[in-house]
Design a protein around this nucleic acid. Sequence first.
DNA 1: TTAAAATTGATAAAGACATTCAAAATCTTT
DNA 2: AAAGATTTTGAATGTCTTTATCAATTTTAA
Lengths: 145, 145
Amino acid sequence: MQEARKQFFQFLARKKLKFTSQRGLIFDVFWHIKDHVSPEELYNAVKQNDPRVGQATVYRTLKLLCESGIAREVNFGDGVARFEPAFGQSHHDHLICTNCHRSVEVMDPKIEKLQEKLARDHGFTLTGHKLYLFGICPHCREKAR
Amino acid sequence: MQEARKQFFQFLARKKLKFTSQRGLIFDVFWHIKDHVSPEELYNAVKQNDPRVGQATVYRTLKLLCESGIAREVNFGDGVARFEPAFGQSHHDHLICTNCHRSVEVMDPKIEKLQEKLARDHGFTLTGHKLYLFGICPHCREKAR
DNA sequence: TTAAAATTGATAAAGACATTCAAAATCTTT
DNA sequence: AAAGATTTTGAATGTCTTTATCAATTTTAA
Ligand SMILES: [Mn+2]
Ligand SMILES: [Mn+2]
Ligand SMILES: [Zn+2]
Ligand SMILES: [Zn+2]
């Protein structure tokens, strides 16, 4: 908990940026929302604590959170960027229900390995990947029958 | 007439939609651009043949091309939708150079199988997926040293 | 040929995100 | 502590992609 906050603080210090109250608040609100949050949603949550914070500051801080390794952007194909905690989390991909939009975090080391090999076979040095699996979740399938 | 053009024609007929000259032209221009084309790029290419075509029509037709299985949308993370031929093409994913933005089409049946299994293990019925591999291509790596 | 229905393109609108800029906050140097 | 330099902030405006509106035109059906 303190760990992540400290990492953000140190990142800002290293870049000679200031740890302002707004940045601190946005970090805190982001950090204890466990969901995959959009800038709009985060902005609304932040406003509950301090209505004077502007949305430009939320966008700007979200960018800093990503650069510092605290947050990671994901895109579920619903037209908005979403952000999830990336510090102290191991890598995972997402399984998304196209009906209720719930998502499950998944990871298969065999898939990860094969992705590496696939890239290498084409002479690429792999630096990252995005994998989204779309389907119908058990809950929705049950309701449909 | 090409196979694909016929399929588009039949799709329109089935939906009681009209095969207009604009739709025909947009299909033709799309079909012989081999690249992953954005709506803007397609619009410009179409205008070379008929400057009177509006961009709204390009967007609308692109949607029809996707519905009919002629085109498929991909998203390389550069802020625009891109479209590629989907008819008579087997499924593939993309390996994208983050430096020069060139892309390579790749596919690994083992990865595909493991995705199925991963979804099934979580009780999901898999309906689709998006996999983008990002890295540095051989060409760019060579130039960098 | 006439009437009904679908399509078109110019324009406006929407929506997410980025930029601008004057005022405010924060850090540095005296 | 005060002054000065630098950064940050929030409101407003701008940009970019995509969608909606709607009167006019084109196509199909009768
Ligand atoms: Mn996640
Ligand atoms: Mn492709
Ligand atoms: Zn569901
Ligand atoms: Zn390259």
